[in-house]
Design a protein around this nucleic acid. Structure first.
Lengths: 209, 209
DNA sequence: CGGTTGTCTGGACGACTGTCAAGAGATTCC
DNA sequence: GGAATCTCTTGACAGTCGTCCAGACAACCG
């Protein structure tokens, strides 16, 4: 009776698969409504399950959200790996990096605004802080791989710390994301072009003499 | 009957004074709890009024929030004016600017996290967008006054657009704010020192050759 | 002084929230 | 095939939310 329950419990893969299914539905709803207005019922409605099932797979709402955040991280952290691996010249890397930034901003805008939402909420809700901090570090490393490789290809060193490099690029990206949500398609396209220009202007400045 | 109502209505200054009182209370509560969890009752509890009075001075919650945002803007927009006016050397301006950044980050952290919260919420809630966009432009101009004056004192030009300059500095500030909320006082102090270093490293890079 | 108007209170409303529990199907094991 | 277990649905619960409203109180005017 003590340990059989674990052995009996489930294939565990199945259990995790369901959790991932729920996480994907939740991420879709969260990206649409934001953290504050995405209720468990709404999340369940946008999935193939009923609202009660959430508490079968997760203890409470916060555990679901945190699980979602971690699940989201696993997908996005390798986003620029090919940029780093395939580049042979500094300018080539810069072009590919900027293009990838624009691509993910255009195609995955709801996920990005959700991330910024959750990161901001972590300043008010302690339960989110740990998971958010962890992911933020991972993103910083992700950006640092790009920036340091860029400097390496240019035969220079980086004039900023990894944290500062992440901070400034993230600031540009967040600004572009905000401007991208205006609703006007023409303006949205212009934002993407501006982002390319801004990144091309900024990155060379980050190289030390 | 048509216009007497306006003349009769009230001293109008009194009316606005009450709105400002409520806005100040609301900003205090919003800075503490964030946009999502600051209810009208909680806001009223932290003021000297009861919860019903809010709908006497504001049509609904959104109008109160937007009013608060505009009220907040009026206070903070001139924050760096003395930095710009008093500086005589580029390094002097840089020191004063960094010191002012650290000061407001330390002393007005709740207001700043509220601003980032509202700005992020504006990506989900259309009603916030207009007010947020307007303030964001004002902040961009505020930063541009600092950066362009810095370049002027250095006898150089700025290598970034006003938007990009605001974006990168705002990114650094937001990152520092996030790291400042960890709870550990020693870490919080280190964050402030790091911000000074980062700003001192970044600003010279923004100058064109 | 009575009456009109501006100001504010406190309670009520319906809608919505996270959470939980009872029970129905489905699945698996002996 | 029967029993135990896993999976999921449904309805209920106690709160909280924004909003509205009847009425109390105060201030001013004729």
């Amino acid at each position: 009776m003590t340990e059989t329950r674990v052995a009996r419990r489930a294939p565990a893969d199945k259990h995790d698969a369901r959790r991932n299914e729920l996480a994907e539905s939740a991420l879709r709803t969260l990206g649409e409504l934001g953290y504050a207005r995405a209720s468990l019922r709404e999340i369940a409605n946008n999935s193939e399950f009923s609202h009660g099932v959430v508490h079968y797979y997760f203890q409470d709402k916060l555990e679901l959200i945190v699980y979602c955040v971690r699940y989201y991280k696993a997908q996005c952290v390798t986003r620029y790996d090919s940029v780093v691996d395939d580049a042979t010249t500094p300018d080539g890397l810069l072009d590919a990096f900027a293009a990838k930034l624009v691509e993910t901003l255009r195609d995955e805008a709801p996920m990005h605004r959700l991330w910024y939402d959750l990161r901001t909420q972590s300043m008010f809700e302690d339960g989110l802080r740990e998971a958010v901090t962890l992911i933020d570090s991972t993103l910083e490393e992700m950006i640092w791989r790009v920036v340091s490789r860029y400097a390496e290809l240019a035969g220079r060193s980086v004039a900023l710390t990894p944290a500062a490099a992440y901070g400034v690029l993230d600031g540009l990206f967040q600004q572009a994301l905000l401007a991208h949500q205006t609703g006007d398609p023409a303006a949205a396209r212009r934002v993407l072009d501006d982002l390319v220009v801004q990144v091309h202007a900024l990155m060379p400045l980050m190289l030390a003499a």
